[in-house]
Structure formats: C-alpha cells, structure tokens
Amino acid sequence: MKPALKTILAAGMLLFLGFHFLALLHYAAPVSVGARLKAASALYCYPYFHQQWTVFVPAPDRQSDLYIRNGEGAVWQPWHPVTQGLIRRQRQCPWAGREMEALLLTNAISYVRHDLGAQTLIFDKAPDLPSFQVMERAARYYFRNYRCWAEGRDYELLLVTKAPGKTYVYYFKNLSLL
C-alpha cells in the first residue's frame, strides 16, 4: 500500500474512532452539552451501541419485597415471598444463569416503583402499565413453576418497599389468569 493511502486510511479510522467515542461519551455521560447534540448522539448510539454506566448510582437505599398469594372467595393461601425465593435460588448456584430471574424481577420492581411513585396504593384491578405487566409475568412464572400453583385461580400481589424511616406498600387485588 502506498504511504499516502496508508495515511489517508489511518486518518479515516482515527476520525471514525473519535466520532464513535465522542458520540458514546455524550450519549452515556451524566451531563449533556445540549438537547440537539444529545438527540443526535442517541440516534447514532441506540440501539446498536447502547450502553449505560450508572452502575449502583444512585446507591440503593431501599429494599423491595414482592409477595404473592392465591385463593378464591374467602379462602386464601399465605403470602409467599417471591423476591427472597428468587434470590435464594440464585445464590444456590450463581453460575447457572439464575441471576437473570432475579435481575428481571428486581428491574421490573424498580420500574413499577418509579411509575407509581413513593406512596402507598391499593389497586382493585391490574394497572395498565407495561412495568406492572413485566413484574406480574415474572411473579406468575415464579409461582407457577416453583410453587405448583393450580391454573385458573385468583391471586394478589403485594409490593413492600422499605426506605430509611419510610415504608410504602402497593397492593394489587383481583388478578386472575383467566
């Protein structure tokens, strides 16, 4: 290859790398230079180069536990802790990929918490939220597969979030597989 062509090639690659990482930096950084630039970098980065580095920021200061119970009429089974059950399963064999179950549930819980806000709420029917659908599906899967749940029964979900000095409860009633 001729030296001139080599120089052009090297300059082209350097330009590409410079553009690529500047766009990534702007896309994933905690501050933004401007809304238009942010939109332009998002256009380039998502979904092919998407990444997020808010690892444990903010540091979690609250603990959420999801409980499920099923029953019919006046007869209900005791509440079963879904979150603790999944974490226990994950810890039994960390390399068996069970972190996916725990991650799925904890992510879904944090989306629900974010959507519903910091308050105690009771729902007489399933809220029309994608985050709730993700969480509900995860909880149902867990109960069906690990607790031998009979199909066609009613069930309820209880999400308890404990922050320093505060406790919020989200109670979802009248849920059914039918």
């Binding site: 444990f56 920021v57 903010p58 540091a59 979150t83």
Partner: peptide, 23 residues
C-alpha cells in the same frame, strides 16, 4: 463519573448500603 454525582458515593456510605440489600 456517575459516582461523583451521587451523595452516598461521595460520603462513603454507598458500598455499605449496597451490601445491606439482599439481592
């Protein structure tokens, strides 16, 4: 950089907080 924007990381309590979360 993200950690520099969080009060818990700056005051040194973040790791202890994380280690108290069962997950």
């Amino acid at each position: 950089w993200f950690k520099l924007t969080d009060a818990a990381w700056l005051d040194g309590s973040a790791v202890q907080q994380i280690f108290q979360i069962p997950g």
